[in-house]
Amino acid sequence: MTALVASRRRPFLQRLAQASEPWLYTAPALILIVAVMLVPLVLGVSYAFRDIKLLNPFSGGFVGLKHFEALATDQAFRTALVNTLWWTGASVLIQFVFGLILALLLNQPFRGRAVAQALCFLPWAVPSFLTGLDWAWLFNPVIGPLPHWFVALGLMETPQSILSDPDLAMWGPIAANVWWGIPFFAITLLAALQAIPKDLYEAAAIDGAGPIERFRSITLPFLAPTIAITILLRTVWISNFADLIVVMTNGGPADRTQIVASYIFTTAFRRLDFGYASAIALVLLVLLLTYSMLIVLLRQSFLKRG
């Protein structure tokens, strides 16, 4: 009897052990993600409908859609939305163009390529706060060379920082972001380039295709999926990337460089208004989700047509 129970129980326990094994391996990661990312995320969504100010002990009440009504008329938020488009679009486009050129250059074999590659990718290793400070100093008219070069080129009349010029300030963080982010595109595209079979080029050359024709009909089609996914992911990432702006301009002058992500940070960190910050964050989340959904839908309709 006992032997029978044991023989029936063991397979069950074994099956249980086998079924739970992957969960045991992934449990630490899942617990961390749920406790430190999902719980605050849900809490943050609830803050968007509450009045939460850190310095006011009587705050915490439910205010419904009050924050969103305030957002609808918030001029700073509208500026930040436009700035986010501008910051993300310019950064991604310039990073992509130069990243692609760099990847094509590094894809040619030459002596010392390994060293050249390491040097080209070095900016990516520089911490973002240091990148921001470094570029702010380069634009500084007292200790930085750039304003003096602009004067020498006739672009400026007297050396001054573009970071304090409302019309030009956004180009400061964009320049820093481009310098820092080109390696990312170059590395990803270089990996994709190296996966293209070499004999395709040889066959095309024998058939008399010139370099431009080979680039158009072999390189680009092979790179297209990598380009699409990298640009999509980078767009989301860069629109959330507030470090350089917080360090270089803090959103100024007069909110001209404030993007939505840095506006959330400033509202939470300087004004300590957690409720309003969470409301802005919720809007940003919805916008980013909409963007991703649109891309997925576009891709599917393309696939159907193809």
Binding site: P40, G44, F265, F274, S278, A281, L284, L285
Partner: peptide
């Protein structure tokens, strides 16, 4: 999917609730 999702949403929106927790 969960892990990919955590890479897509703006981490900056966790700053306030994280402080409160």
């Amino acid at each position: 999917a969960l892990m990919l999702l955590t890479q897509m949403f703006p981490l900056v929106m966790l700053i306030a609730p994280m402080f409160k927790i």
